[in-house]
Design a protein around this nucleic acid. Sequence first.
DNA 1: AAGGCGGGGAC
DNA 2: GTCCCAGCCTT
Length: 390
Amino acid sequence: MPRPSPSSPPSVDPVRLTPRRVREIGSRLLEWYDREKRDLPWRRTSDPYAILVSEFMLQQTQVATAIPYYTRFLKEFPTVQALASAPEQEVLRLWAGLGYYSRARNLRATANRIVEAHGGKVPDSVAELLFLPGVGSYMAGAVASIAHGIVAAAVDGNVIRVLSRLFRLKKDPSGPRVRRELEDLDMALVPRDRPGDFNQAMMELGARVCAPAAPDCPACPLRTVCEAAREGNPTDYPFKPRRAETVEVEESCAMVRRGERYLVTQRPGQTGRYRSMWEFPHIEVAKGGKTARRAKQTLGTYLADQFGIEVRVEEEWAEIRHQVTHHKIRKRVFRCSVGEGEGRAENDEPKVEETPVRWLTLEEIAALPLAAPQKRILELLKDAESFFGG
DNA sequence: AAGGCGGGGAC
DNA sequence: GTCCCAGCCTT
């Protein structure tokens, strides 16, 4: 049997899963976890509903970001019944600013399903959990293991990284196939007596020690059983697929004031960003050429066509920059003036039925579900009003 | 299999 | 600036 020559293409190292190595990984990791685990709100409860809420919030969201939202949310909806019977707008309002608003809608739908079909109890099997809206492979395993002590794999971004380094896995983990292999591998590692703690420990290790850019190998409880650490190149793992290029987007936003009230509208549609959330009217502006002038024109036309409101677009009043996934957005906020008797009087009938329009005070607007950039505009307006004395 | 979905933390 | 986060759903 010839040895592979140095020039042969790299192949995936065979994963060696001796019972001894499995035991060692489990015991070292749990020992570390028992010593180092953070005191997090959802670790102070054994209520499966609360744990379910935390898992929804923690999707693509860092622990520190989620904590204040989690606390508020459970205070408002302490039981699955309370959430199931809440209006969607109310759920969205508590989620506003956290992003990925489908999570909020799915969580509410899941609460509904749990009350209707599971007698108000969060299911304890992975198969049943997978039927719930917004619950995928990771969450089903996380909830089953953490809330119910079921032996299940829970493979998130942290676990992908830890496993890839432990076993020097070179394959792209973003596809479902390799993902499935990772789940099988993880499943073989989960200690039968403490599945929930093991899964949390893997994630905590990934977040605090086995970090993406600067892993702290000397502090790692698994350094003696980690192939990448031995090789000295942990940051070579996991394989990273090419990222989408950043796209720049220009938007115009209308600040239309009438006395104490401002024009706001509800985002229409069954799909798409921010649906059913509220905003100061805004629209994307085609780029190129004299963008600034086009931004004004586009906005005036939009207000007239969409809402039947004739305004004069005045000066640019503020500029908001933010980034969502691979979109880099610049939002120019224009002050707009409405002539006396123009626009509409108190009974606003938009031309487009499904696009509600309201004239509201800043206080009333603050009570609506607003995405983060809209909250920022609202804060700017509040500051301006207090500055000018209202 | 690929793209959409928001926002923020860490560097 | 960059990367990536306790992912999931739709097409």
